[in-house]
Computed example of a mutant assay.
Amino acid sequence: MTTNTKRANLAPLLVDVAVPVGGYYLLKDAAGMSTLAALGWSSVVPALRTGWCAVKERKVNALAVLILFVNVVGLLLSLVAGDPRLMLAKDSGVSSAIGIGVLVSVALGRPMMTAVMKPWLVKGDAAREAAWARLTAGSTRFRRAEKVFSLVWGLVLLGECVVRVVGAYTLPVDTMVWLGNVIMVVAMALGFFVSGALAAGPMARMLLAETKAARPATSASAPAPAMAG
């Protein structure tokens, strides 16, 4: 991975996490703003970045629009209610919305997280792509693991939502500003571990076995090379 690629991958994380957290404490402690005002202003940059990315790419990104919508609605509700805890709780709205969407996709038989997992397993290899298609069409175990992967992530995202909402209304606001991000990181780590053990790992092994099993048949059916001379 090149330096430019690393920077491109880290930039959104810095804007969405480092700027809101650092900005909150800077505005509240150094500038003397109220908790509500500090939370509101520290959310402006991530919201603008989301909107700018949508305009720059000239296409509607459902996830980006959802995040922007949650930020704007949460800010407006907090201004009306005057409750900074509501602004902290709103962050879980993204997780809950995505989690519910993923679980619905599993119920409909079209697991949403497959689009995220498949590129990592197929790795752009034509033989693996063909093996994936065969397994999807003929292996009940493979399709079940595919659903389990999305099911795990749907439950993890909903669980993160519940924990963050409870924390927002039971812990001090200053604590939840940084703890909310810790909860998110822990939830992601848990999701990767459990989904990998229960679904992605077994699917990778089935995919590899199917790819290897198809190679001898392909080689046998290939025409013999012409004899020189």
Rank of each mutant, 00 (worst) to 15 (best):
L36Y: 06
V102P: 01
P119A: 01
L39F: 06
T140G: 13
V70F: 08
T140N: 10
A30R: 14
K28W: 12
G101Y: 02
K90R: 02
W120Q: 13
V106I: 00
C53Q: 12
A47M: 12
L135K: 01
P46Y: 09
L36N: 02
S42L: 03
T35L: 06
V45W: 06
L135P: 00
V44P: 10
A62F: 06
V104W: 00
G82M: 02
W52K: 09
T140V: 11
A30N: 08
G138F: 12
G74Y: 00
G138I: 08
M33I: 07
V70L: 04
A107D: 07
C53R: 14
L108N: 10
V122H: 03
A126V: 10
P119S: 02
A130W: 05
G138D: 10
V104E: 00
D125C: 04
L79F: 14
Y25M: 02
A47W: 08
A64L: 11
S95W: 15
W41T: 09
S42R: 03
G124W: 03
K28E: 13
V70S: 08
K118T: 11
W41D: 12
L76M: 10
V60F: 15
E129G: 12
A133Q: 09
A81Q: 12
P84Q: 03
K118V: 12
V80Q: 13
T114K: 11
L76G: 09
W120C: 06
G74H: 04
L88I: 02
V102E: 05
I98A: 09
V106D: 00
I98V: 15
L63R: 03
L86E: 10
K90S: 13
K28Y: 11
L36F: 07
S78A: 15
S34H: 09
K56T: 07
M113L: 03
G99L: 03
G99Q: 02
S43H: 10
K59R: 15
S95P: 06
T35G: 06
E57W: 06
S78R: 04
A37M: 11
A81V: 06
I67N: 11
A115G: 12
A47V: 12
A130N: 06
S96R: 11
V60D: 09
R134K: 09
A30K: 13
V60A: 13
S95E: 06
A130D: 10
